[in-house]
Simulated scan of single mutants.
Amino acid sequence: MQTRAGLGLHFRSLEAGDIASVMALEAQVQTHPWRRSSYEDCLDGRHHCWLAEAEGQVVGFVVVAWAGGDGELLNIAVAPSHQRQGVGECLLSLAVEQVKPYASMLFLEVRLSNRNAIQFYEREQFFEVGQRPNYYPSKRGREDALILARELS
């Protein structure tokens, strides 16, 4: 797959040997990255994680889960050196295609303060369905999450 900026991407499933590099990537872009055990859940089928590679280097990843006709985007990240090149759009597109056979809706939470991410999701056909008070840890305590959804039909 090629991004809108012409970057060639290869997607593959997370393997045990990838966890350290995925955690290092996430630590570059998240204030409160996931624990190792969260990524290990991707290896036993509770969650599903795909990596985006460019020239043999992991440049992003996406984690999803589905059950009962609903899907959830649990995590998505793009390396700072590859942001704003369409990698996130490609990862989200992959996630939608993987979840679509199992779910009619895809949900996610996003920090209320993350305006860039909210605008990205709105461009990608997500709409607001609610809020979760005090959902995310923050440097000053807790932060609310905006709940977004996208129809997959």
Rank of each mutant, 00 (worst) to 15 (best):
G8F: 01
V29G: 01
Y39I: 00
S21W: 12
W34F: 13
H10W: 09
R35L: 06
A24F: 01
Y39R: 01
F11N: 03
D41I: 02
A27D: 09
D44G: 01
A16C: 07
Q28G: 07
I19P: 01
D41N: 08
G45T: 11
C42D: 10
E40K: 03
L9P: 01
G17W: 12
G8L: 07
H48T: 11
L7Q: 06
R36L: 08
T31N: 13
L14C: 05
Q28W: 05
L9Q: 02
R35C: 01
S21L: 15
L25E: 03
G17P: 09
A16M: 11
E15H: 06
L14N: 02
C42S: 15
G45A: 11
H10S: 11
A16T: 13
W34K: 12
Q28Y: 04
G8V: 07
G8I: 02
C49V: 11
S13C: 11
S21P: 08
P33G: 11
H32R: 08
A20V: 14
V29L: 06
D44I: 09
L7C: 10
H47A: 10
G6F: 05
V22D: 03
I19H: 06
E26G: 06
R35Q: 11
L9H: 00
S13P: 04
M23A: 02
G17R: 14
V29A: 06
G45Q: 12
G6E: 07
E40P: 00
V22G: 01
E15T: 12
H47M: 12
H47S: 11
V22C: 08
F11E: 06
Q28P: 04
R35S: 07
S37G: 14
Q30R: 08
A16F: 07
H48Y: 03
S37F: 13
L25V: 11
S21V: 15
Y39L: 10
S38T: 03
Q28H: 13
I19N: 04
R36H: 11
C42T: 14
L25K: 03
F11K: 04
A24C: 02
V29E: 02
G8E: 12
D18H: 13
G8P: 02
W50N: 10
G45P: 05
M23H: 00
R46M: 09
